[in-house]
Design a protein around this nucleic acid. Sequence first.
DNA 1: CGCCCTGCCGCAAACGTTTTCGTAAAAAAA
DNA 2: TTTTTTTACGAAAACGTTTGCGGCAGGGCG
Lengths: 344, 344
Amino acid sequence: MKFEAITIKDIARALNLSVSTVSKALRGSHEISEETKKAVMAYAREHNYKPNPIAQSLKRGRSKSIGIIVCNIDNNFFSQAINGIESVARQKDYNVIITQSQESYEREMANSEHLSSRSVDGLIISLSAETKKVDHLIKLHQKGLPMVFFDRVTDEIATHKVIANNYKGAYEATRHLLQQGFRRIAQITSSNSLSITFERLEGYKKALEDAGLKPDSKYIKFVQHGGMIPEETRQALTELLQLKNRPDAIFTASDRLSTTTLSLLRKMQIAVPQEVALVGFTNSISADIFHPSLTSVVQPALEMGQQATELLIQLIEAKRPVTEFKKCILDTELKIRDSSLRTT
Amino acid sequence: MKFEAITIKDIARALNLSVSTVSKALRGSHEISEETKKAVMAYAREHNYKPNPIAQSLKRGRSKSIGIIVCNIDNNFFSQAINGIESVARQKDYNVIITQSQESYEREMANSEHLSSRSVDGLIISLSAETKKVDHLIKLHQKGLPMVFFDRVTDEIATHKVIANNYKGAYEATRHLLQQGFRRIAQITSSNSLSITFERLEGYKKALEDAGLKPDSKYIKFVQHGGMIPEETRQALTELLQLKNRPDAIFTASDRLSTTTLSLLRKMQIAVPQEVALVGFTNSISADIFHPSLTSVVQPALEMGQQATELLIQLIEAKRPVTEFKKCILDTELKIRDSSLRTT
DNA sequence: CGCCCTGCCGCAAACGTTTTCGTAAAAAAA
DNA sequence: TTTTTTTACGAAAACGTTTGCGGCAGGGCG
């Protein structure tokens, strides 16, 4: 059905040359006379010859494609990150193959397995919320598959990592709430198996301690699927609001959690920030038109994607095994808006 | 560097069989005795044999991957659509390769060229705002590359198309504004070369005419890059607001345009809906927490992506050339919120 | 004049499959 | 028993490349 593309063989036949000569000519080998090269090049251009990348992949053992595993692409942070990944990959002539784990451990395993058997040259991964063991990735890594983690990383695999400065981001967000005079600051965060959860929790705790407050576990709610399931978030929020000492501010530690929480608060008719103030991690470009406009910790998602991709391609194209690994920590930006401002 | 995977050859050697026997056994051919099949299967499973997809692609002439071209993935509508595309593709064992045109004609050409030379089995495309000629796609289509258009389609290529009912969506949005009593209804829309622009414009005009009003071109502003460049939107909005008979309502005809316009109106301190009402196409999941909450025409993005993918895979796997093409038109949903409600 | 060197090119193997065809042995039919 | 059919497998070509090696000229050298 598909129109047969022109191959090296066709060129060889047309020019009365051997296949190998044509191949070498196209690659500019010194074994071939200038004259012949010219002729071959000319013919190739004229007939719009494109080398078959599949054949090349088979021969070279590299596919010039990289696999991505994220929990969900329909998320501001990840779609921005993928935007960055795609642009760098394209520029270096790599294809980007996207998969989604939907926060499921099973699907993450299946996707990593599938991508590696599909012979991608490398992997860029942000772990799923359900993932507690990374044996599936360790196995692939040991087999020599280059991988770079971003956002949700693991300590169990020695390779490049790209993360936002979650600790500092959370610290600043919490400190901001404290400076505004809030004292009972709760946190709604993702699964406690995630690196980002830990880091954001630590930053939050440190800020409280620096202000002479003791973190209280009653005020910390883990949402196992990071906001993908609204009901889980509602549950966490409701529990917080029913506490004797109801929090006067909430820090939501991920993108989906932030928007969902704000939405729920509005449905519950709870005034923000009057009754409860809110600060959240989010990369929504619309945070300034929320009601109230949402004070946000914004991650440099695009840059994170770009960096991760550059590091991965370095790994892939390294002549000798790489043993020094970077952990890139990019600063977040705290955008102060109405949702966190003390009104009284 | 990469650990060599086990191949059919290895199995053959280990079991004292020929390569062809193993291949047939793995595919369950009737030519092979049950006994041998069992042995091969067992060995394969035990050693975690995975067929090399690149070799298979080369042999079969199909890559089991589909290419996507959208203007930008960092956009609610498209990320939701890609979510749908990915899920269906995954289920049918196709890979999804993503590219972004960034609304550039040049990049769309380069991407389509690149994807086809990368031998994807098919293409799912939403045209870029700059695209006026589709010769580059016609060429590929004539060569036999299956393609499905979605969202922004063209009449010049006979193939499946999946779109939202833009006409009806725009009609309903405009009618809603009319019912609320607004009379000077402006539209800010995308490049006038896009199908969606035309359809949404027609629905808008029809609604006006049905209400006995004459569409006025002063009230219609085209934004060439569909909101990717905020300054263009600002320009359009400013011009509208400076008109003698300033519009009392605006209908924004795309996702980015809607959020950007609302954001600009807030920055300009123009009260919505008191001074200007607003209805927009948007798939933002946060439209209900905007200030004011935004009356939206919501497209079934996920379903559109799924449908487009199913149709494409049908085309790819069709035994005989397909000559009957579908144009799937999926209904939008008008979510009425505060931004369009008459207050006086 | 014989030698080697260099320039230019082709042969053939290889990457990992799939598939067509051939063929031996075993089973069935004569 | 011989002939035919069936069963089960292997040899080899093919997909489109890349690459090591060998060969054949012609030219420079001794």
